[in-house]
Amino acid sequence: MNAVAAARSDNVTDSSTQSRTGLIDRLGLGWFFRLLSSSIGQKFVMGVTGLLLCGFLVAHLAGNMLLFVGEKSFNEYAHALHAQWELLAIAEAGLLLLFLAHIYLAFATTIGNLKARTNTYTLRQTKVPGRIIGANSWMFISGSVVLGFVILHLIDLRFALRSGIDYLVESDPGAPFHNTVAVLSNPLSRVIYFVGVIVLGVHLSHGFSSAFQSVGFNHPKYTPMIKILGKIFAVVIAVGFASIVVFVPGMWK
């Protein structure tokens, strides 16, 4: 039975008549498989992972704002964080999972979309009043730029692997602050970080409110506020991180 015919048959989702031969079925994980393979399930998971990543951004920005306070505060914060190494390891694994899921689904949905629209109109004009083709048409591209930035950022500071940057060894108590300023003073990192966080803001200017719609939350009482909140959130994240890139290296010469 081909996929269309299968979907057409009334009993396709009737658990009592489904054959239970595969491993997925024997473990009762059919729902999970459908969550990750159906269009709506995929969008739901994208929305949830996107929002959880937004939560991470808030925590990360708050911690990094200590770079403006001074060397001592930032190092103390970093050491306190790393003292919780068990929790940190779990958090990092969680973050990695969120990123991998979000990125996998970004590819899966975008490829599906390109396959669904194989040819384009000679003339194309929006009917949404005041819409300029903006952030919502550039989600895959803005996400990819963010991915590039995140990879460089991990190489720079999580793994301290960039050549030409004079890192202090991790055991040195001054390492967190010193290494951060050293990386931010590197011209290549500086430019890419700046572009990366601005494009992240663009991604969020659509992503934040879009995620609520994807998880099914659209309500006349709250949706107008969520839309505005999404724009404000995008600006706060972009300007917040960009201010670190722009001002911190000069402040602590």
């Binding site: 269309v4 979907a7 396709v12 269009s39 979309n113 396959k115 669904a116 989600m139």
Partner: peptide
């Protein structure tokens, strides 16, 4: 399931 099998795309809001 039928919508997906018929190769319609995903909503990007």
């Amino acid at each position: 399931a039928t919508m997906d099998a018929e190769h319609f795309g995903n909503c990007t809001n």
